[in-house]
Design a protein around this nucleic acid. Structure first.
Lengths: 363, 363
DNA sequence: TCTTGACACTCAAGCGCTTTAGCAGTTCCC
DNA sequence: GGGAACTGCTAAAGCGCTTGAGTGTCAAGA
């Protein structure tokens, strides 16, 4: 433990230089592993620095040309929709794990929409606050890659498909198409032919990828009654859509939800309508979390390692900051974990008729 | 729109000075609303700055004595337990809303435990990275207030009871005691006399406050069979504890959970054992979220405005940074929202007997 | 013996900003 | 009419660090 010093005085390189009997430059060389000092001096300087509890001032570092030792992360979400969500916290946790090794800070900001997000990038850039950023929720016609290119701010797009128009950006993505194909395969193997995909925001790139894949898979397998419905990701809308499709004629026998939260909400809605899961209806959640094991029946879910996803993204950003080339990295395809909410499609008779009286589909 | 410039060059005050035909100092005075320049010059400088899209370099500002324009927020959570949680994201969102008005950044870090958290504070302080911090999850015998005092790093403790030993810290807290008293009052009014409180981590200050209050309330009302059981906040442990107390002799007629997640997990566990809610058992969740409306029956919950909570905390920190005195602010007592999981206690016969065969409590 | 050059180090400038001191010019007042 | 007291501005130092240009020393090579 260092000896008790007067409280609010940070040690500087000058202090170290004085104590070690060398110049400030020597201290700088010593501490940054640069040639120009003897090993003996280097060791001595290191020792003094350690003893003083010295850490480089990021401000001074940033000012003299080094980076700000910080990366940025913006979450564009209307405050109202910030709900139950395990994905982001896990993602951020993974990101941190990697950044912390290099003592990089994470500047985090929640904003209302993408326009605000762009404003934040501009400000961060002008204020010299971050060395790079992590971008989530890429969307069709996204203004962000172009902006980041213009600012030459290193960036990694998380969850986007590779984008050739902005070769400066790295991309880390999960293969939604492959996952969707596997889900459809699994469901058709169980005999399901009427599948509804309750998707997220229509503007997001991965929503569109999933919808496109579903359509293609349905065409390939000759499934006529397959559709996607987009939502705002809220549990309320998920429940409403679920009620609507289940009450309609030729109700689906399987529902695929784009998030665990929507799946849980949908499950409750289905139960209210008297549908028994998985006997009458199979349910799959895209995104696994404790939530899936907190409802009855337990939800089958597409699981991916969000923490690892974050780590991968952070590593790519580090590579970029080190001057490496932009790359596109694909993380493992989400695995379908079959629990209790999926089962063989009912074969007795195709369900039909508009109104369901709530006493149950087969009664 | 500014004219197209070469990409990666930030405008500096020197640029403004040249364009406006004045010295750098004049620019500084003009832009910081300091006396020393005429209104005409001030306006001209402002216009040029605007036009150039200038923003002060935080690094340079920080280096010349101003703050780092950043506040820190550390979340000490083992990565594994980062689960479904709406509280923190909402809290952070509220914090941001206030900080953004002043263009303050939020440095966010997830660490494993409080020791690591302290290390982060030390590093942030030494690196001159933050002007102040927001501390969550205060606990008994907490090393953090002392450390922050020692570093004279302005801080607001969120969720702590006022602490006289560290007069430098502000505190923003919700009146857990009052809320617990109201819950107990409500439940006893419904006839419940056997209540189990399934609490969170035993080390946290608010856990202890709730437990103490429950005990005091029970004593005051002459309820003998009231107890608190601490958990690690996980859904798994909540379910396990629920099963244990419901299977025990003299099972409780009401359960109070410290989080919505635990309440949902407990609800499922109770359902498995054949308990019907609210007929056999009343359930209250401490913390409201969409989750509470996604299960059957909907959970009665103690609701507070987490976004507002964050805003209040951030405002207190700003006040501190402005040189104001440390204060203790109490946010409104959480309100009990009665939904469908609470009802009159069964009066037919006191439940008893160890083993429950799962066919239902009254069968 | 005198150069070379490698080595270990110091000096000083500069990053973008704030801030104190100072310097002209104007107004004011006895 | 000559200080005093403004007003509106500039010059320069300094925050803590990096870095390129220099300086002194010593050993090896000519």
């Amino acid at each position: 433990m260092p000896t008790r010093r007067s409280p609010a005085r940070r040690p500087t390189m000058k202090d170290i230089a004085r104590r070690a009997g060398v110049s400030e430059s020597a201290v700088s060389f010593a501490l940054n592993d640069r040639p120009g000092v003897s090993e003996a001096t280097r060791a001595r300087v290191r020792r003094v620095a350690e003893q003083l509890g010295w850490r480089p001032s990021t401000a001074a570092r940033a000012l003299s040309g080094e980076g700000a030792a910080t990366v940025g992360f913006v979450l564009a979400r209307p405050a109202a929709t910030l709900g139950v969500d395990s994905f982001f916290l896990q993602l951020v946790s993974g990101i941190q794990g990697v950044l912390a090794e290099r003592h990089l800070g994470l500047l985090f900001q929640v904003v209302e929409d993408v326009a605000d997000e762009c404003a934040v990038y501009r400000r961060w850039w002008a204020e010299h606050r971050v060395d790079g950023v992590l971008v989530v929720d890429p969307r069709a016609d996204d203004p962000r890659p172009g902006l980041l290119d213009e600012l030459s701010l290193p960036a990694v797009v998380i969850g986007g498909a590779p984008d050739e128009r902005h070769p400066g950006l790295s991309t880390v993505w999960a293969d939604d198409a492959g996952a969707m194909a596997s889900v459809v395969g699994e469901l058709t193997a169980l005999g399901h032919r009427r599948i509804v995909h309750i998707a997220g925001l229509p503007g997001l790139a991965h929503t569109q990828r999933r919808i496109r894949t579903l359509r293609a898979e349905a065409a390939r397998r000759g499934l006529a009654e397959v559709e996607s419905v987009t939502t705002d990701y809220s549990d309320a809308e998920a429940a409403a859509v679920t009620r609507r499709v289940l009450r309609g004629p030729a109700a689906p026998t399987a529902l695929v939800y784009d998030t665990d939260v929507m799946a849980v909400a949908g499950l409750a809605a289905a139960a209210e309508l008297g549908f028994s899961v998985p006997a009458d209806l199979s349910v799959v959640a895209w995104e696994d979390s404790a939530l899936c094991r907190m409802v009855t029946p337990w939800l089958s879910a597409l699981s991916r390692d969000s923490v690892e996803f974050g780590k991968t993204a952070a590593r790519e950003l580090l590579a970029l900051l080190d001057g490496g080339p932009a790359r596109t990295v694909r993380v493992p395809v989400p695995r379908l974990i079959e629990r209790d909410s999926t089962g063989p499609a009912r074969t007795d008779r195709p369900r039909s008729g508009a109104a369901n009286d709530g006493t149950g589909p087969g009664a």
